[in-house]
């Protein structure tokens, strides 16, 4: 299938405040949130982005929604470069690409009633007010909040986290978008609520034929939603392949660690030790060569000199490591 979103060589650096020494040396330190990321998302695909905190997942999601601009590189949506979108074309893009947030308690304006919150996209898209009620009712049915009269006049603090996340999803769906980015949509929710939201996300995606990006640090959750997974480490993609492959046979040493770290609700499962040590290095000064090398149990001389390229080891499976992994 043709790519709906394509991300090419995207680099995103954020300036950080300078120490006195750096001011004197005229250094301009940056956080290298993303450092050369390329991939394509086919129409109708569901792709997961996983990785440790701070590895650039959210930044990547925000770039794909044109909420921040890349330092270099480009992103295109449906063949059009996001960088050049303005005026009506940007408005059209905003109708088609939506975001679901990590923290539902913060994603809704506390001063807006639920009705106003869900009507916001309709207002911004210039849709006649006469249509609002019907569209909102339809979106609420989609997210299984059918008795909407109970919610519409409430304020966010009067709803539970699970209900709020459904409202946030309803708001994202009310304009019938084609592309949805969900940034850790269940990590703030209680376990018993999670299952319901995950099932809902999958159902909505299938029913509406959405292309979806799902951001998480937990492979166990991702597995319920996405066929394909990108594993990120310190601003780069280290593995990109079918989710089941990555879960069952992770190739990159970091993916292995990520799989090993997922807790299993069964006390009889063997507790395999975590194959890596230490913390993610400072994104201001990533290691030379392979960024994972200071934590990698297999690192060898070449890893310090050359950054490993992301190369295909099978159809639809890419890995960035110097080891012979295939």
């Amino acid at each position: 299938m043709a790519a709906l979103v394509s991300v090419r060589d995207v680099v995103k650096h954020f300036p950080v405040s300078r120490s006195l020494g750096e001011v004197v040396r005229r250094a301009r330190p940056v956080v290298r949130a993303l450092d050369g990321v390329s991939f394509e998302v086919g129409a109708g695909d569901a792709v997961a982005i996983v990785g440790e905190s701070g590895c650039g997942k959210t930044t990547l999601g925000r770039l794909m929604l044109k909420l921040v601009e890349p330092t270099t590189g480009s992103i295109s949506f449906d063949g059009a470069a996001l960088g050049g979108l303005k005026g009506p074309a940007l408005r059209e893009f905003r109708r088609q690409a939506q975001l679901v947030f990590q923290n539902p308690f913060d994603a809704l304006n506390p001063r807006f009633t639920i009705y106003r919150a869900v009507a916001e996209p309709l207002v911004n898209a210039g849709i006649a007010e006469a249509e609002h009620a019907d569209r909102i009712a339809a979106a609420f049915r989609r997210v299984h909040l059918p008795d909407l009269d109970r919610y519409l006049d409430k304020y966010p603090h009067q709803l539970s986290g699970g209900q709020l996340q459904r409202v946030v999803l309803a708001r994202a769906l009310v304009l019938a978008p084609r592309f949805l980015v969900a940034d850790e949509p269940v990590s703030m929710l209680d376990v018993s609520v999670r299952a319901g939201i995950l099932a809902l996300m999958r159902e909505v995606r299938d029913a509406m034929g959405l292309t979806a990006i799902y951001i998480s640090h937990d492979l166990a959750l991702v597995r319920y939603l996405c066929d394909r997974t990108l594993v990120m480490y310190l601003g780069t993609i280290v593995e990109d392949g079918p989710t089941e492959e990555i879960v069952r046979r992770p190739r990159h040493p970091y993916s292995r660690a990520l799989v090993a770290a997922v807790p299993v609700p069964d006390p009889d499962q063997s507790r395999q030790p975590l194959p890596i040590k230490g913390n993610v290095p400072d994104a201001r000064e990533p290691p030379s060569g392979c960024r994972f090398r200071d934590r990698c149990p297999h690192a060898f001389a070449r890893c310090a000199d050359e950054p490993p390229p992301l190369r295909a080891i099978a159809d639809g499976h890419r890995v960035a490591c110097h080891l012979e992994i295939a």
């Binding site: 929604l65 909420l67 940007l90 408005r91 905003r94 109708r95 690409a97 939506q98 975001l99 947030f101 990590q102 923290n103 913060d106 994603a107 809704l108 304006n109 506390p110 916001e120 996209p121 911004n124 898209a125 946030v168 708001r171 304009l175």
Partner: peptide, 22 residues
């Protein structure tokens, strides 16, 4: 930086709307 302000941006709210309404 609040998520709901970002949400307004994603849904295409203008700067004026974000500033004065949100």
């Amino acid at each position: 930086e609040r998520a709901y302000v970002e949400a307004a941006r994603v849904t295409g709210a203008s700067h004026a709307r974000i500033l004065f309404v949100h």
